[in-house]
Structures are given as C-alpha cells and as structure tokens.
C-alpha cells in the first residue's frame, strides 16, 4: 500500500502545486475556471494515451523515446510558465488589461494538460498493472486514495492561501511559484537528457541527502515545490538557473516595455 501512496502522492503533489497556482492566478486575471474543463479532459486523454503507447514511445529514438518525450513536455511546460509570468506582469502593470481568452486557454490549459499527461501516465500504468491486472485492488486503491487525498488536501490549502492574498500580491506570488516550478521542470528535463546521454553528465556538485533525503516527506515536498535534488549535476544547476533568468527577463521585458493602451503610443504594446 505504501508503494501506491508514494507513487500517487508524488505525482499528484507536483500536479496540484501547478494547477492550484494557475487557478489562483486565473482568479487574479479575472477569469473563472472554465479552462480547467478543457485542461482536465486533455490531461486525462494525454495520460491514458501516453501510458497505452509507452512501449512504442520507449522504443523510439533508439530506446530514449521516454526521456525525449518527458523532457520535451517539461521544457514546454517551463516555456508556458514563462509565458504565464509574462502575462501576469502585464496584468500587474495594467489592472484593466484583459488577457484574450484564447491565449489564457493556450497557456493555462496547455500547462496543466501537459503536466497531467506526464504525471498521470505513471499513476495509470501502476494502477492498471498492479491494481486491476494483479487483482490487488484494495491495497493499491486505498493507497492511491490516501496519496491522492493528501495531495489534493495540500493543494486545497495552497490554493486558499494564495487566494487570501490581495490581487497584486497574489499575482506576484504566483509568478514566484511559477518561476520556481519552471526551474524545477528544467532541472528535471536536464536529468532526462543526461540519462539518455543527450546532455553531458558530470558528477554531483554537492550532496545534501543527509540534510533532506529525497525519499523523505520533506524531500518529496521540496522536490515537488522547488525541484529539489540532493545531488544535482552542473548541467542541471545551469538549466535551473537559466530557466529562472530567462523567465525573469521575460517579466522585466513585460514590465518595462508594456505601455498601457491609451497612455503614450499604445502601438508599442503589441
């Protein structure tokens, strides 16, 4: 049962932090959660498709299809999160600015569905082969329910904590959270790429596993929240910092170059 708890909790926690941050952000942008319906639908379909096609995907790219798909998804999510920050900063600068719904749908539903595809596939695979096929339903599903329950509960508190902030502070906090989440994703993408030997791998730069073991609950939480790794490599650290820097750059660009429509030459904004 603990296997199921750990597997489900890990994946749900990562997804929940992302989803709840985006939900809080969308309330600050004046949108309700209609985009969630599309995101969940796409996410569930994506996860099922990924799990069912995993064998073919694994065989592709000389046996590194999984790594390539995973890192592509992670990088795409990180890019969309940077886009989210860009939009959030625009919104911060001009509270009357209304993000076009199509754009919001693309960024928000895209992020969530891609994250769910990655996280959901593993849960599906595990639950199906060890719960349904192995006829071990009670153990796997009670474990899964416990993991899911804990993950969703933490997500609920996270969402209401963000929501309790006033609008501008909420947007800023969401940006910070998204910055860190995106950096964690990039770090993980780096791992996948060096696992497939597509990026050079070096020895660990440091090792903090005796402070926070990655397998402990705190380690898991930190991993989900800030992409904590006990012994990261240089590539990982570089991509982590690079992602933060790029996203910050995009935010600064949005802040300094965006002109409120009507004030000065509005053409600059487009």
């Amino acid at each position: 049962m603990t296997d199921a708890v750990v597997i489900v909790l890990r994946e749900v926690l990562e997804a929940m932090l992302l989803i709840c941050m985006l939900m809080a952000s969308s309330t600050a942008m004046g949108y309700r959660f209609r985009w969630m319906a599309l995101a969940l639908l796409l996410g569930v379909c994506g996860a099922t498709a990924y799990a069912l096609r995993l064998e073919q995907i694994s065989m592709a790219f000389e046996g590194f299809g999984q790594e390539i798909v995973n890192s592509t998804l992670l990088i795409a999510i990180a890019v969309l999160l940077a886009a989210h920050n860009f939009l959030a900063v625009k919104q911060l600068k001009d509270s009357k600015y209304r993000i076009p719904y199509g754009l919001l749908l693309l960024v928000f539903a895209g992020t969530v569905s891609m994250a769910m595809t990655r996280e959901g596939a593993e849960i599906y695979l595990y639950g199906y082969s060890y719960g349904v096929l192995a006829d071990n339903m009670s153990s796997v599903f009670s474990g899964g329910a416990i993991g899911m329950g804990i993950g969703l509960s933490i997500g609920t508190f996270f969402y209401y904590a963000l929501k309790s902030l006033p609008r501008n502070k909420r947007l800023i906090t969401c940006c910070v959270v998204s910055l860190v989440l995106a950096a964690g994703m990039m770090g993980q993408a780096a791992l996948y790429l060096s696992q497939a030997d597509l990026l050079p791998s070096q020895g660990a730069l440091w090792d903090t596993s005796n402070v926070f073991s990655e397998s402990s609950l705190v380690g898991e939480l930190l991993h989900a929240a800030i992409g904590y790794e006990a012994s990261p490599s240089l590539t990982q650290v570089l991509l982590y910092l690079g992602s933060i820097l790029t996203s910050l750059l995009a935010m600064f660009a949005a802040w300094f170059l965006y002109r409120k429509p009507g004030s000065g030459d509005a053409g600059d904004a487009r």
């Binding site: 995993l54 064998e55 694994s58 065989m59 046996g63 590194f64 999984q66 790594e67 593993e122 695979l125 082969s129 791992l191 060096s194 696992q195 497939a196 030997d197 791998s201 070096q202 020895g203 660990a204 596993s209 073991s213 990655e214 397998s215 790794e229 006990a230 012994s231 990261p232 490599s233 990982q236």
Partner: peptide
Amino acid sequence: YELNREKVIVGNSQGVVFIGPLK
C-alpha cells in the same frame, strides 16, 4: 535518488540508462 535516474520499463522489454560519472 542517489543516481538521479528514473525510467519506466514496460513489461517484457528493456530500457537503457546512462549513469555516472560517479564518485
């Protein structure tokens, strides 16, 4: 966790993982 690796290997198949260099 120590090797920083994770890879799903489907039933009746194989997977390749590069590891190291390690102390």
